[in-house]
Every structure is written in structure tokens, then in C-alpha cells.
Design a protein around this nucleic acid. Structure first.
Lengths: 218, 218
DNA sequence: AGATGTGAAGTAATTCACAGCC
DNA sequence: GGCTGTGAATTACTTCACATCT
């Protein structure tokens, strides 16, 4: 779930379009690696479990055109999505909370998305500090504001316990963070213009449990 | 993101209502622990970062009524949500893939949601098998069908590499699983009547990176 | 007075369907 | 012929606004 609000952004780029562009890019990178140079909207739609019209709308939203005969040029499309999603620069992300979940996040993203890098992690526990985990240095939490300001970090992942999440977010906002990946099972209150993407595994598991009990079919 | 599709379920219970009910329950459990017996829609809405009308609609959808004078009875509401979300029974969930992420999932959910339990985990690696992690026994992947059938498990979390996710899902569907929590960064193709909730950290991180670059405000 | 419950309105997102092009 | 691009239609979701109740 996404909240934190009000980012109409350049005209027609909604949150869900951004999400699907991320998915398309991932699929296209595989397609490209497999050697294909062109792809049709219906092929991309099948891979993305979406409709061809949806794919075309999304590509229209970023101003990317295909050819009626040959579809979309795979590598050009990847480049276009790269340009939109991260402005062709590497994004630095901070991580707060280096528990089980935080470490799994660092491991998961190490070398997975070259355009995003966890450049600093923070934890309150002195035993965790000053190590390097999966290429990311862990600092004491008190240095968060200083380092985030120094490095101009504007995105952060929150992997602290639920009870500390709001306070953590408040501090990070003051330090200049305006985009959050929130793993804590609470909703964060943030100022207008700040983005929050909730990765709410708790809610997700509850939904899965609910549908497991629904009578089969329909 | 949620796909897998077509669960109109009992009239007005949409996927997002189910998700918010999960959130409300979590908030209400805290409210209840703090001693409050009644709560107004606007209070719950503030905690959930939603509107009061949304909260009332959601509660209407599960047929729960409050009193104009005193709002909603906290414990009754928790009970009502429990009845809807998991039919008041404990849901058994299988985990496939006991890597970094899979282990973090087991750790994260251990004792977190009493109404859901990871009762069996599966992995291909013989070194991981036959241990008990956070109360969950790890079996060889070849025994998945057998054990899922035997225990009547209908929900599963997929935490295998992207390249194996579809194949894993196919096998689980055959064994009787009809609701998936998918952590792999791919979209699963599943039969109608099967539910998939994607916990797509990759997409989420890309979104966060995108909004980190958006000009501040609005 | 200040809540709830809800029809009606509004807004957002998706899909249809078809003109235009290769 | 079969694809793209897109206005129009549809569907889904949220919010308004007010009658109703205590």
C-alpha cells in the first residue's frame, strides 16, 4: 500500500504506472538478454499478467512509441524506463534498523538493482555498528541526520520495530528524506510531498489467509 | 500488488477492504491494550491514515455497527474482524525457499500473528533440511506435495529465486494451495480462483527511488 | 451536538473499440 | 492483417453530504 500523498507528478504518471514500469523493465531485461530486439504489447502484457491496453497506456504515459508493424524496441524501451524511473542516476538509499529483516533487505538488494544502492545503514545497537554488511556500512543511529545530510540521501528504508517507526520517520524527514520504503507494520504520518511505500507483509499475510479460506472458484 | 484474480467474494469485500481490515485490527489491538473500550471512526481513520468515511464503509462491508453516541466497541470489532479475516481458525501456511529471505520471513512472523502459522518449510538444499527454524520444520522440496496434501495446507509463501517461482507455484497449485504470498520479483500465472499477493520489494524500491528524485512539494 | 449508515456524486483506473499506419 | 495510439465507455474505489439516531 502506498500513502504519504499527493504526487500528481508530470501529468499522467500515477503510482501504479510507476510500479508497472518497474516490472516491465525487469521483464524487458530478460527479454533483451534472450536476444529479442522487439516486443509487442500483448507479449509484455502476458509476462506482466496485465492487458495489452494497459501496457500501451503505460508506455504512452512516458511518451514512448512503438511501430504498428514491429512493436516496441526492447533496448530503447529499457532506456526510456531508466530515464523516467531514476533519471539515469544511481539513487542512494539509507536503511534504518539492522535486525533480521534489515539484514535480509541488504542481502536481497545487493547487486540486484544497479540503479539503487544502500549506501548507509543505521542501528541503535552498538554491537552492530561499524561493520560492513553486503557492501553497506552500519553507523550508530545518532549519526543518521549528519550522514544523510552530508551525502544528500533522499530515500530511506525503515526496518525498525513498529513502535519506533514513526519517530524514526520524523527524524529522517528533518534530515531531508522525502521517500520511504516502510517495512514496519504501521502507517507513517509524513508531510505532504513525502512519499511512503508500505511493504506490509503483515497485511499481505492476512489477505492470503483470508483467501485461503474462500470457497474455491470465482 | 495483487493478482490471480476474480474473487468478488461475499458482495462488497474487495481486496483493499480486506487489507484495511487487517490494519484496523492491528491498530485496535493496541487501542484495546491501552484500555479504551470504544473508538470513533475518525480516530481509527487517523491511526490508519484514511478518512472516517472509508472506515465506516469498511465496517459496513462486514456488517458491523456502532452507536452514534459512543462509536464502535473495540473488542467486539476485533472479534468481528477476526471472524471475517480468518473464520476464527488458525491458518497454516507453507514456506518454499529457506534462503536469507525465507529465514527472515519465518523470524518476522514467529509469534506475530497468532491466527496464522508457518507449519512447514521446504527447500531444495539438503543442508537446510530437517532443522527447525523459529518453530517451523524444514523439509526437502520433494516432500512438499505430500505434506501439503496431508495437512490440508491451502496458503503458501514463495521465497525462491525468480527463475523458480512459476514452477514452484504450479506444483503447489496441484497440491491444493489456492492463496499465495509471493516474494519473488515475478508475476505468477495461476488458475482462476487462486489468489496471489505480491510483496514486490523490487518494485517498491524502484518507486521509492523515483519519488526521491521528484521535486519537493505537491 | 455529534456521531453513524448510506445513497448519490465524484474521482481514479482500466478496458473497449476503432481509426490510422506499416 | 495485425499492430499501435487513444477518445470514449466502463468499472472500481473513495468521498460527500445528509437523514437518522442517541
Amino acid at each position: 500500500m502506498v500513502h504519504g500523498h499527493l504526487k500528481p507528478v508530470s501529468s499522467r504518471l500515477t503510482v501504479q504506472t510507476i510500479g508497472r514500469l518497474s516490472l516491465y523493465r525487469r521483464l524487458l531485461l530478460e527479454v533483451s538478454a534472450s536476444g529479442a530486439r522487439q516486443i509487442y504489447s500483448h507479449q509484455l502484457a502476458t509476462a506482466a499478467v496485465a492487458t495489452p491496453a494497459q501496457v500501451r497506456r503505460d508506455l504512452m504515459a512516458i511518451g514512448f512509441s512503438g511501430s504498428p508493424r514491429r512493436g516496441y524496441a526492447v533496448d530503447d524501451l529499457i532506456a526510456a524506463i531508466n530515464a523516467v524511473l531514476a533519471r539515469n542516476v544511481e539513487t542512494s538509499v539509507a536503511l534504518v534498523g539492522v535486525g533480521n529483516l534489515g539484514r535480509a533487505i541488504l542481502a536481497y538488494f545487493a547487486n540486484r538493482e544497479p540503479w539503487v544502492r544502500f549506501t548507509a545503514a543505521f542501528d541503535r545497537d552498538p554491537d552492530k555498528v561499524n561493520r560492513i554488511l553486503h557492501g553497506c556500512r552500519v553507523y550508530p543511529i545518532d549519526r543518521a541526520e549528519e550522514i544523510i545530510r552530508r551525502d544528500g540521501i533522499r530515500a530511506a528504508a525503515i526496518a525498525v520495530p513498529a513502535s519506533e517507526a514513526q519517530h524514526t520517520a520524523d527524524r529522517l524527514v528533518l534530515a531531508g528524506v522525502r521517500s520511504f520504503l516502510n517495512f514496519a507494520p504501521v502507517r507513517l504520518h509524513v508531510p505532504t510531498g513525502t512519499f511512503v511505500d508500505d511493504v506490509d507483509m503483515t497485511t499481505a499475510l492476512d489477505r492470503v489467509a483470508f483467501y485461503a479460506h474462500q470457497p474455491q472458484g470465482s
